[in-house]
Amino acid sequence: MNVVRVPRARQRVHVPPLMQQRMQPYPQRHTQKRARAASAGAPWIVAARRVSMLLLACVATLAPPSSANAQSKADAALAQQHWVLNCMGCHTATGGGIPGKVPPLANSLGYFEHLPAGREYVMRVPGASNSALSDQELADVLNWLLTTMNRDALPNDFKPYTADEITAHRRPAFSDVATVRARLIRDLHERGITGVADRY
């Protein structure tokens, strides 16, 4: 006698969610936990990274490049060397000049930069115009002299000399420097700029 077995319908067993979670393999459970934790903390992580990047950008902007700073110091040292070799003999080491003979440059020359004609005067005095310095070297010396010994005398909109400007206005040298200087000083006094004395 043959017995026919009829398969029973599978019964659905209700399993609580907590039990379902515990029934999952160990690695899968912890992977899901880490994913939920990362998702919850993602906004804070992104914000922290953005703040860090912003701070780094600010520091990079404020800090001057070391190579450019070193180059600037080298240019200033070379300009000072040209001053010593070509100008200091008459105008003295402090730029104070010789009373009655050589006009002072320190705390004096910068006032002429308030006038367009005064700016040209600085380039065309015989000591500068006829010097052995190249146009670039003369521009560097004048800029060094004005920004170190005449810082308080310069106008707010002072622009450094360039080699092209020196080339265009350096020559001819003034033949009567005293007359040109006296006229410029009168113009300065009329503007209320009295830092340059009539006589030296």
Rank of each mutant, 00 (worst) to 15 (best):
V122N: 04
V59C: 15
A60R: 13
T92S: 04
G97K: 01
P27W: 12
C87I: 00
K159I: 09
A139M: 07
A74V: 09
N130L: 14
A79W: 03
D157T: 09
L138E: 00
T148A: 01
L138R: 00
V46Q: 04
Y26I: 11
P43W: 04
L85C: 04
Y111A: 03
S129D: 12
S52Q: 13
V84E: 09
A37C: 04
G110S: 08
F158E: 04
Y121K: 02
T31P: 01
A106C: 02
D140W: 05
A132S: 12
A77F: 05
L138P: 00
P103R: 00
L115Q: 01
A70I: 11
V46R: 06
R36Y: 12
A132Q: 10
A132N: 12
R34H: 10
G100Q: 09
C90P: 04
Q32F: 12
A60T: 13
P64K: 10
R124C: 02
L54M: 13
N69R: 15
L109S: 08
S72T: 13
Q81P: 02
L154V: 06
P126R: 10
M23I: 03
A139I: 07
Q28Y: 11
S52R: 12
P64E: 15
A40W: 05
D157M: 06
A132C: 08
L133E: 00
Y161F: 15
A63M: 15
M149S: 05
W44K: 10
A63P: 02
P104N: 06
G89E: 05
H82P: 02
P64Y: 15
E113W: 00
D75C: 03
D75H: 06
A70T: 11
A77K: 10
S72N: 13
W144V: 09
Y121T: 01
Y161N: 08
A48G: 15
P43T: 08
S66T: 10
W83T: 08
C87P: 03
Q81S: 14
T31E: 14
L85T: 05
A106N: 08
N156L: 13
R29T: 14
N69P: 00
G89Y: 02
R124Q: 10
G110W: 07
Y161Q: 06
T162E: 09
G89H: 06
S67A: 15
L105R: 03
N130Y: 05
A93C: 01
D135Q: 06
H30M: 14
K159S: 11
P103N: 01
S108D: 05
M23K: 07
S131C: 03
V102F: 04
K33A: 15
P27A: 11
L154M: 05
D75P: 00
V122D: 01
C87T: 01
S66H: 10
P160D: 11
K101W: 06
A77L: 10
V141F: 01
G127V: 13
P160S: 09
F112D: 02
V141D: 06
L146I: 07
L55P: 02
G96M: 04
